[in-house]
Design a protein around this nucleic acid. Structure first.
Length: 696
RNA sequence: UGCGGGAUAGGAUAAUGGCAGUCCACGGGGCUCAUAUCCCCGAGGCCCAGGUUCGACUCCUGGUCCCGCAACCA
């Protein structure tokens, strides 16, 4: 690796964090992949030899647990997601040079090689630790295969973290009353030998490494806490079948975070196997040939910074590979100002975006340029429309279209004169900005260099008004020639962000060759002379589309929330919508009608609140004791913050009495109270119906 | 609680301690080859409180708020 400016003489590897084979992709995920794709295209554009690789992360307990729930094998489960990812990325023009997965033979082999190297170098030792064990099923229960009671807050918790209560991380052996998540059997603790990676031996190295690491500031600073504090060694084995076998140990697999980053190497290897080492040499890039290695750039979400700045470089170092040059950690995405919530279907899914008929270019542009890469950005359909209409249609599309249209009509293509000095210099400036974006690890800067150039183009054509010039005025040919060149430069510089539009400009210009393969210098190359009338690059998004999309989103969230509530998860999630907003745009009435019989299935009763108290550890849940005439019921509802609980006893409410029981935060909820809207305005009786009266 | 990132106009971004600039949106006017671009004018901003200083968005102290991370969560 060098710390010279790109492009360097060495091969580069750009990687994207492995998507975990356990769910659907939404535009929040896409930010990292689009960012990586743009960055790798930009590097290639600068002439840097680059491999862009990733793969699906197939292992780990969540896959195993979810597969078991579905009754399929982990491999089947994970492969299904893998295939889906593999199909989805190209639809967004995210084009990996190689996309593998962690369960393929290459990765298993590479992982085992690296683990052996760690062992040989003396970085692995054994230690006995307590592990949950299911004696009935004769099975070890690592991580999420066990759940029980958090020793710190007493809430129900997963084996590895107290997900519902205090949020603390739990060490193996800590969780109390352990129960198997597969069989429901009570578990016991058994001492068990496990393998540890002596990260602490590499503390000094990691301290130096982090000082020279490039990329975004968050990736460099966040891990300082651990690296400059006391590093703990890392347990790298698990008692399960699903994973990469630990070499020489039949009943242990490697912890998923060992084989996951190694997929970066394996995927590069597969690329070399496909194209030949004369085109791209994985061993040189990763320093497996004993050399210094190439330029390794990791592009990840900021949630996995520590894995890429502590464990991973430690493994590379200990096993004798090259270290990463840069880590770019992206911020998160919010949707219309609020967090994504996949359980509430509050998300813009990758497939959904495409199904709405939008081109990948538009989203790529939005994601790449709406804020700095490490900044959290908000996605809203309104702003999406604004930026597409103003910047892509108004600035870029309009400039290219008006220039090429004018050129085609007046000259049948580009007039045969040289590009003026001023314009040449302006294009050179744009190239410099583009390069600065790559060297500053800013996909935003890369994307904006082309838009600013198009903006200059609009000013330039406007200032010179070629449409007012006489046909024999040499100035007319000059201006048009300059504009055609600017349009070509825009195609070259905008290609990483909007590959499809770049291709269209290229075709309109009647250029030979592949716009995806040319270098930045092509921006200044003489254009083809003849071309016809151009196509329109981008289409405006009408305002009604935004309304429609927002309505769809709201309706979906409402539906998912209602589903969740009927499953007894009411209020356990965020619900901070404000009342005015909810009143301003009401959800449309459902189209589907239900029969009277269906309605009659609901046993709705008048009830009276006897007692109300908050559920400990939950922000929003309240435990209510409700008198419904025939009996008293305990009902949990998400109203803790919305009502004064002390004033509730004596209040008459309406209750769905025959809703199935549910457990929320470990508290049983036997029924559901009816309330209106996000503010949970409680339904009550107008007259004096006694508790137990049926509502009909 | 600790650590990190952040807070500049409605949104997005700049400013060695020296006039708070730019893009988009908004209001008004002009131009018009073009999917309404460009030009002109206008309204609108430094999270708060102290301090250092001739002078603070910038440096210091103390707060507030947002987003993360806190290690066998993929």
């Amino acid at each position: 690796m060098s710390h010279e400016e790109f492009p360097t003489e060495d091969p580069a590897v750009v990687t994207c964090g492995l998507p975990y084979a356990n769910g659907d992709l939404h535009i929040g995920h896409l930010r990292t992949y689009v960012g990586g794709d743009i960055y790798s295209r930009a590097l290639k554009r600068l002439g840097q030899e680059t491999a862009f690789v990733s793969g699906s992360d197939m292992h780990g307990t969540p896959v195993a647990v979810n597969a078991a729930e579905e009754g399929v094998t982990p491999e089947e489960f994970a492969l299904r997601h893998h295939e889906q990812y593999e199909e989805t990325f190209p639809k967004f023009d995210v084009e990996f040079d190689n996309y593998g997965h962690t369960h393929d033979a290459t990765n298993v082999e590479t992982t085992q090689e690296i683990v052996r190297a760690l062992e040989e170098a003396g970085y692995v030792y054994e230690k006995e630790i307590p592990v949950a064990y299911d004696p009935d099923a004769d099975q070890w229960l690592p991580d999420r295969f066990v759940e029980g009671t958090c020793p710190y807050c007493g809430e129900h918790a997963r084996g590895d973290e107290c997900d519902e209560g205090c949020g603390r991380h739990l060490e193996p052996g800590e969780i109390e009353d352990p129960v198997s998540t597969i069989t429901g059997n009570p578990a016991e603790y058994r001492e068990r030998e496990h393998k540890f990676f002596a990260v602490s031996d590499l503390q000094e190295y990691l301290g130096e490494f982090i000082d020279r690491l490039e990329g975004t500031a968050n990736a460099q600073n966040q891990p300082r806490e651990w690296i400059e504090g006391e590093l703990q060694d890392w347990c790298i084995t698990r008692d399960m079948d699903w994973g990469v076998d630990y070499p020489g140990e039949d009943d242990l697999v490697l912890y998923v975070w060992v084989d996951a980053p190694i997929e970066y190497i394996s995927s590069t290897k597969q690329y070399t196997e496909r194209v030949g080492s004369d085109v791209f040499d994985w061993a040189e890039a990763w320093g497996a040939d004993g050399g210094d290695g190439g330029e390794i750039v990791h592009i990840i979400g900021r949630d996995i910074i520590q894995h890429h700045t502590v464990f991973w470089p430690a493994m590379l170092r200990a096993a004798g590979y090259a270290e990463p040059r840069a880590v770019m950690a992206s911020g998160f995405i919010t949707l219309e100002g609020k967090g994504f919530s996949t359980s509430r279907d509050r998300a813009v899914w990758a497939d959904e975006y495409l199904d709405e008929g939008f081109r990948p270019d538009l989203l790529r542009y939005y994601l790449a340029t709406n804020g700095g890469f490490q900044q959290d950005v908000d996605f809203s359909w309104g702003r999406f429309r604004e930026r597409v209409n103003n910047e892509l249609v108004g600035t870029v599309g309009n400039f290219v279209y008006r220039s090429l249209l004018f050129a085609a009509r007046e000259f049948g293509g580009a007039p045969d004169v040289d590009v003026s000095e001023d314009v040449r210099e302006r294009i050179e400036t744009a190239i410099e900005e583009f390069e600065a974006g790559v060297n500053g690890y800013s996909v935003r800067e890369v994307g904006e260099s082309a838009v600013r150039l198009a903006q200059f183009g609009n000013e330039y054509i406007q200032r010179n008004e070629p449409w007012k010039l006489e046909d024999d005025d040499p100035e007319k040919a000059q201006v048009i020639r300059d504009c055609v060149q600017i349009a070509k430069a825009v195609a070259v510089l905008f290609e990483p962000v909007t590959p499809e539009a770049a291709e269209n400009i290229w075709n309109d210009l009647n250029e030979d060759g592949d716009v995806h393969a040319v270098g930045v210098e092509a921006a200044l190359d003489v254009s083809a002379q003849d071309f016809g009338e151009p196509t329109e690059l981008f289409e405006k998004i009408p305002e009604e589309r935004v309304d429609e999309l927002n309505e769809k989103l709201e309706a979906r969230v409402a539906e998912a929330t209602a589903d969740a509530e009927s499953e007894g998860e009411a209020g356990a999630d965020e619900g901070d919508d404000d009342g005015e907003a909810a009143a301003a745009d009401l959800e449309p009435i459902a189209d589907e009608r239900i029969s009277f019989e269906d309605f009659q299935e609901l046993d709705v009763r008048v009830g009276e609140i006897v007692a109300a108290e908050g559920v400990e550890g939950a922000d929003k849940l309240a435990k209510l004791t409700v008198d419904i005439g025939v009996e008293e019921r305990q009902i949990v509802a998400g109203i803790k913050q919305l009502h004064d609980l002390d004033s509730l006893p004596g209040t008459k409410i309406i209750v769905v009495a025959n809703l199935e029981k549910a457990e929320l935060f470990g508290v049983e909820s036997n029924g559901m109270l009816l309330a209106a809207g996000e503010q949970a305005d409680l339904l009550t009786t107008h007259g004096d119906a006694v508790p137990g009266t049926k509502v009909q």
